[in-house]
Nucleic acid binder design. Structure first.
Lengths: 194, 194
DNA sequence: ACCTGAACACCGTTCAAGT
DNA sequence: ACCTGAACACCGTTCAAGT
């Protein structure tokens, strides 16, 4: 029963999920797999390539959850996809950073991000690549902020700052989509009225 | 002539500017200052605290460039500040990441970011803290993308992807401000008409 | 083909001991 | 008060040699 790349990536994702990116070292990974460090480099070119694989795994299944959404407008489909990406990432520590690394390393490897761009293109946005980055900067940035707040709460539960969680994400998404598609009324309430 | 914290931070900023964050290690810093590594820990608690200082230095002088802007609307002043922050960072490699670390470590330490929030508040934005993050995620995200593109161009000049530089930043800023303040017409052109 | 053993060139942080 | 010397517990990557 020899080591496979799938095992390596799965175990890496496991360490990330349980302990965060600081603990996801090649040596720790080797220990968890009961092999020597060098063995990993037969299955993976280097750590960065491994992280691209982990990012792809994190986002696996996001597309499946985003069918045609019959009857919904382009704006709704895009918002749905953005929420799907956030949901896939928010429970895994440092996942936003991992996706950012993967995105900058090979921008075409993450399928949900490509789908986001095509949706924006299909919606008539003149510069879909820029819009894709605009949306992703918000998604990843707000995930990182949420997780950072959670981390601080673990260290010092007394310092309960304003949440900066789900509501902040929805609000920002609304602002961006308003800017892209135009809006009926200025955003006053938090997220959606009664 | 003993070592000072200012010297330490200045030299750290120098290494960052010339070689990037990967080369900004405590040991490298000590070598450049002709001291032992341990000496640094007399002037600085740890590397994270040092990075907060470096981030503050990076953003020093941004406020000075943002006076009252008499006669301009709130939207213009906010856009001007966002551009000022970008200009201060875009020429220093990995500066966006350094600012992100500092921001998450002690969110009140970077004065231009506080000023951004007050401006948004004064402009009548109901949730200025969320808006501050929304704008900063765009500013820092687009800086990182610009620098990443530049880095790839250095490695492989043939792979000249679409710029993703100044124009993308201005376009995204416009979309966000449109979403926040409302807009006259949908964003069609790239950035500003004839 | 796949893995071990061992090395190379690094990290951040601490701390007794010196001046 | 400020710094050295030296250690502790790590890193990512490479590569001859084994099976």
């Amino acid at each position: 029963m020899t080591l496979t790349r799938e095992q390596v990536e799965d175990t890496a994702l496991g360490i990330l999920t349980r302990f965060g990116l600081a603990d996801l070292s090649m040596r720790r990974l080797a220990r968890e797999l009961d092999v020597q460090v060098g063995a990993l480099y037969w299955h993976v070119k280097n750590k960065q390539e491994l992280l691209v694989g982990v990012a792809a795994r994190l986002l696996r299944g996001v597309e499946a959850d985003t069918p045609t959404l019959e009857g919904a407008g382009a704006r709704e489909v895009i918002a749905h996809l953005a929420r799907g990406i956030r949901t896939a990432l928010v429970s895994v520590p440092d996942s936003a950073e991992v996706v950012r690394v993967a995105q900058s390393l090979q921008s075409e490897a993450l399928t949900p991000l490509n789908r986001l761009r095509s949706l924006l293109e299909a919606a008539g946005i003149e510069n879909a690549a820029w819009a894709q980055h605009l949306v992703m900067n918000h998604v990843l940035g707000s995930i990182a902020a949420t997780q950072e707040a959670a981390r601080l709460a673990t260290v010092d539960p007394a310092a309960a700052t304003n949440p900066l969680g789900d509501d902040a994400f929805e609000w920002g998404l609304r602002v961006i989509l308003d800017g892209l598609f135009g809006k009926a009324a200025p955003a006053e309430g938090l997220a959606g009225g009664p």
